[in-house]
Design a protein around this nucleic acid. Structure first.
Lengths: 255, 255
DNA sequence: CGGTAAATTGACCTGGGTCAATAAATGTGG
DNA sequence: CCACATTTATTGACCCAGGTCAATTTACCG
């Protein structure tokens, strides 16, 4: 199971984010230790439960250990815009580095375990480990591009294209967290959630999923989704992968 | 004139970004010197000319010295999504900290002067000035929130609301760069540009501007725009200012 | 003063929303 | 394992916000 909880919090020993960063740069023991401190404390959530609520004062940063989290805002008319899905090994809550109040609600999409930590730890990291600081600055750009890609999708593409792009993005991001994910995976989102992420209604999401199925691009059966023609999906949606081909050569040497 | 060029490049002596940061934290002489190095070289652009083009290989970061820049993507069908407007004292090109190729085209909206600099300078900054590194990490969150606000607007609000929100955002951001900007200012965007930023057609932008005018919320005359009822605009658009009330208490001490 | 970009306006069309009903899936307590 | 309750998914009928197309008008520019 892709989204299964990796067990209770006590057996989460290693640093997931160190593992992720280690794919890109060779970490020093000091850096490893610093990163491990970010994940010392863990907290489990059931599907739907909220970690940070918009406008709350006290905010922590966090790293997702397992499962999938999301952030969203609620508008006065009750509608919701999902801003971001957050996968294992990714960091969340960065906006609280600038604002005292929570800007977007953070909740669990599936059963999930996260490791929350205080801003003061980020301060230590920035002061003591410049290369990691640079890495975080760079990685925040990945999230930024994910946002701009979706912005362009909402502003300028059709419903079908937006959904196709979201499905591809989900697959790619799951794959980063879990190399075994292929073109068939458990889609844990409801159609309403897909709509709230793409700016559509649940009803129209349903219609478009059926069309994608009729077009032979995807197949569905009870919660599982298969991307039958990933190239076709990419072509209808103008999708660009943003989760590889990093160029971090500029990073300062480790201190 | 709000957007006038401040002269030819030779008389741009001070560090604009140091000035901006100085509003929030007390800079050390070393930090000041580092920031000044970011703005040593300048380059002027005429309205519409392009600084970075999507997919190009060599990319620089830059700080806007005067005028207004924007970034956008072009879709295969020729439509454009404007992602961001960049004001004096703001930094652009951060995505090139992660990617070797330019992700979004950067062009001048008005006559503009920018100070381009290499990634290697950012490396020096991160390595030698942790507090500035933390500041840049925090400020990239402001841009992130501007993007998520617009994402929510495109996904979940009406054409009128999106335009109202954009007008308020432009006023607020101009005001950060130039304290004298009030509720009346030169709107240097064409209606097509407003549409490309809000995911609408120029025709519909025109209709909505007229409606806002009929509603008594704005007034227009030859390129100048007056926000007659900023509170009313904020209420129709669900706008939240993101350009003040920062909480940077977590930043490490200056080295 | 001609020439081009930008703004306006009207007529008409359509992608996606709304509303409502039904079916399927999932969960819960016992 | 069952009966019921709650989500979630599906489908049809109909509507409207915003798009398209085309024609003027106005502003700007050398």
């Amino acid at each position: 199971m892709i989204f299964s909880d990796r067990g209770d919090t006590s057996d989460v020993t290693d640093s997931l984010i160190a593992e992720r960063i280690g794919d890109v740069i060779d970490l020093t023991p000091g850096e490893r230790a610093m990163l491990a401190r970010l994940e010392q404390r863990t907290r489990a959530f059931r599907r739907g439960s909220v970690f940070l609520r918009e406008k709350e004062r006290h905010a922590e940063l966090f790293i997702v250990k397992s499962g999938m989290m999301m952030s969203y805002v609620l508008l006065p008319d009750g509608s919701r815009q999902i801003l971001r899905f957050i996968f294992p090994g990714e960091i969340g809550g960065l906006p609280s580095l600038l604002y005292a109040r929570v800007a977007e609600t953070v909740a669990a999409v599936t059963e999930a375990v996260i490791a929350p930590f205080e801003r003061s730890l980020m301060s230590e990291l920035v002061a003591g480990y410049p290369r990691l600081a640079g890495y975080f600055l760079a990685m925040s750009q990945m999230e930024r591009l994910a946002l701009t890609d979706r912005l362009a999708a909402l502003g300028r593409t059709s419903a079908k294209a937006r959904i196709a792009a979201l499905l591809l993005e989900l697959r790619d991001r799951m794959r980063v967290a879990d190399k075994t994910v292929g073109d068939q995976f458990a889609l844990t989102l409801t159609q309403e959630e897909i709509g709230d992420a793409t700016g559509l209604t649940a009803v129209h999401v349903n219609r478009m999923l059926r069309q994608l199925e009729e077009d032979g691009l995807i197949a569905r059966r009870s919660g599982h989704l298969a991307l039958l023609d990933a190239a076709g999906l990419a072509s209808v949606s103008n999708y660009t992968a943003r989760f590889n081909d990093f160029d971090l050569a500029w990073l300062p040497v480790a201190r």
